[in-house]
Write a protein that binds this DNA or RNA. Structure first.
Lengths: 181, 181
DNA sequence: CGTGGAGTTGAATACGATCAACACCGGTGG
DNA sequence: CCACCGGTGTTGATCGTATTCAACTCCACG
């Protein structure tokens, strides 16, 4: 769930804002991922739908975050992810972001990007370790303390999807937790 | 499970080789992660031990891969990971690798590193999505097709740990799979 | 209003974990 | 060279956590 570097921020400011409504889909699997979405206000998410038809949320992007299918973007492959709006949002759409990276980047900018990527790797690491080692309840508690603002804004079933559990299980976990507190 | 960039490869070649034996621990939680380990032959792994005393393997590093606690390294924090040898191995030990990155890196080199980090992010993405959406059997099948050479060399219990299941479950999954084939 | 999605709750089920016993080596020392 | 030992993997029985399926409530929104 990385936010933008200084480098990109400048660039985003220069772009015209786009208004999107809750539920609006910005990227679908199979489409070229030649756009990046910077979130000015609101919240987007990316997710896959597996072969059993179940949604799995890969990341949330609230204010000041960038979201797209980066792998598809960098390698000029079709996207495997959906991106849509969790809330009505104002975003900046960045065209051909891959070129932005490979072309006229200074050393300073590329070092910033390295920092950024590294942070992202850390976030993923925590998530992997948590998926390997923690129960549903521990994962939810950890989510609440890590992203307290998202808990308010995002429907429970999406949080469940992000955590890798069913909405019913999350409901029960929450019931347990109020009992404990 | 990223391997090294061209940039780093040159550097590694210049280092003296170190022989380590199976089971030898190279990094422990709490120690400063001021070394990176490049694997010339053999295989290392990194893992955590959780509060219930269970091992969770974060990554394997066979030939031509680099392994350490990168987060600890970059931020000069103590490591949270163990690194040890899965097999007798020949490695190159890189001292203060963080400095190597931040200091005298050219634009070309930093772009290589960006590519590298991005690949790593992709690998993690697949692992996250798989942990979210796949059964033990699917995860193992996928591991076998992605890392066929590791399956031969790494003890099953370590593969189980990497996949987030118990050795007993993996044994049963394997039994199921031979039946199917 | 009334309709549909979100959340909750209950009951039955399934998957993987746990605990325990045992077989099968690979290596070590006598 | 062989006997023993410890670790690895297998198998069985039982348990626990989360899933599934279903019913119901409650709003938010038309």
């Amino acid at each position: 769930m990385p936010n933008s570097t200084e480098y990109f921020k400048e660039y985003f400011k220069s772009l015209p804002p786009t208004h999107v409504v809750k539920g609006q889909i910005l990227l679908r699997p199979g489409e070229p991922a030649d756009k990046g979405f910077y979130v000015e206000s609101g919240c987007l998410r990316s997710y896959i739908i597996d072969d059993k038809g179940k949604e799995h949320i890969y990341q949330f992007a609230p204010e000041d975050w960038v979201i797209t299918d980066e792998e598809a973007m960098m390698d000029h492959k079709p996207s495997i992810l959906f991106v849509d709006a969790v809330e009505d949002s104002v975003i900046k759409i960045m065209n051909r972001p891959a070129d932005l990276l490979t072309a006229d980047m200074t050393l300073e900018e590329s070092k910033q990007l390295i920092q950024k990527l590294q942070k992202k790797v850390y976030v993923f690491r925590r998530r992997i370790i948590q998926l390997l080692s923690s129960s549903a309840e521990e994962r939810y508690s950890s989510f609440v303390s890590t992203y307290p603002n998202l808990v308010q804004r995002v429907p429970q079933k999406m949080i469940a999807s992000y955590l890798g559990i069913t909405p019913e299980s999350l409901s029960r976990v929450r019931k347990e937790l109020v009992g404990k507190k």
